[in-house]
């Protein structure tokens, strides 16, 4: 209902809505989020399932702020609440903080071993949880789904997804088997905010494993030093996607960054030497 009134909030000659957050006024583009406004205002709001590279899911519920509707206040998630008219937001109000702390305590009970989660909790002033661990379908996973979204939206593989429902929800490849679609890029591990997803290198087999999904991919080994570089599929996809049909580029992909660097240095050195002569 608010959305239809929304445009009325924009006064003439003022095409951008303003967000008053904890008393600070900032202008944002239409349909920007409260989180965008908070960043602009220099106000920190904790997030877990949010990442600027992928779409917002608002599933972790950590970024709760209070939206002031005049007569009443409503808790909303900052990461996906679209600003469509002038609004007033309280990010540091007692109710907002209490809500965020409550959510954090529930998450800590679920994933008590995550150092990253603990660090974030401490930054929020939550030193410990008073809840027992009653759900743990996947060790230390808070089910934020960033890995699922990055794999689908950025990598384009959709190798992992949610399986099960409710407390039995887990993140897995189809049939909870190692994925055939996983290219071993490790984006899921990089984006995981609680350090649950890890990349393991099996030197002996020249394989990369994405834990806990048990997906493995063959590694491309540096032709010079024998160190692993990336998975073969990643390098293939990189070539396909970048559409660079340049023999030297393809050639250089067969060396690890370190060797590539020393090769470049050597070539550069040779060139310089030639010039001097």
């Amino acid at each position: 209902m608010s959305l239809h009134r929304s445009t009325k909030g924009l006064r003439k000659g003022q095409p951008v809505p303003t967000v008053t957050i904890d008393g600070k006024k900032v202008e944002v583009e239409k349909d920007a989020t409260i989180l965008d406004a908070a960043k602009k205002a220099g106000i920190w709001i904790p997030t877990l399932c949010y990442h600027q590279a992928v779409s917002s899911d608002a599933s972790c519920r950590l970024c709760m702020v209070e939206l002031d509707r005049g007569e009443w206040r409503q808790l909303v998630t900052a990461c996906n609440y679209p600003v469509r008219r002038d609004i007033v937001v309280h990010a540091s109000s007692e109710r907002a903080q209490q809500a965020r702390r409550g959510v954090m305590e529930l998450l800590l009970a679920r994933a008590p071993e995550s150092k990253e989660l603990k660090a974030l909790a401490e930054r929020m002033g939550v030193m410990q949880t008073h809840y027992p661990t009653v759900t743990e379908s996947q060790r230390n996973c808070i089910l934020c789904g960033l890995c699922v979204r990055v794999c689908e939206q950025i990598i384009g593989q959709a190798a992992i997804g949610f399986a099960g429902r409710g407390v039995d929800r887990t993140i897995a490849a189809p049939f909870r088997q190692p994925s055939e679609d996983c290219i071993g890029c490790g984006a899921c591990a990089a984006i995981c905010p609680v350090g649950t997803i890890k990349v393991r290198i099996h030197q002996d087999k020249h394989e990369i494993e994405i834990s806990p999904f048990k997906s493995r991919a063959k590694l491309l080994v540096c032709q010079e030093c024998g160190e692993p570089i990336v998975s073969t599929q990643v390098s293939e996809q990189l070539l396909r996607k970048s559409k660079i049909d340049w023999e030297e580029f393809r050639e250089r992909l067969r060396f690890c960054p370190k060797c590539r660097k020393s090769q470049s240095a050597a070539r550069l050195g040779a060139a310089t030497v030639y010039k001097k002569q």
């Binding site: 899911d57 608002a58 599933s59 972790c60 519920r61 950590l62 409550g102 959510v103 529930l106 998450l107 009970a109 679920r110 809840y131 027992p132 009653v134 759900t135 808070i142 089910l143 949610f162 099960g164 429902r165 409710g166 407390v167 039995d168 929800r169």
Partner: peptide, 21 residues
Amino acid sequence: LQKESCGKCTTCREGLAQMLY
């Protein structure tokens, strides 16, 4: 409700499990 919760959001998934406990 805990059995029928889809499990997407933290509060419903974890909160209901705590309440049931």
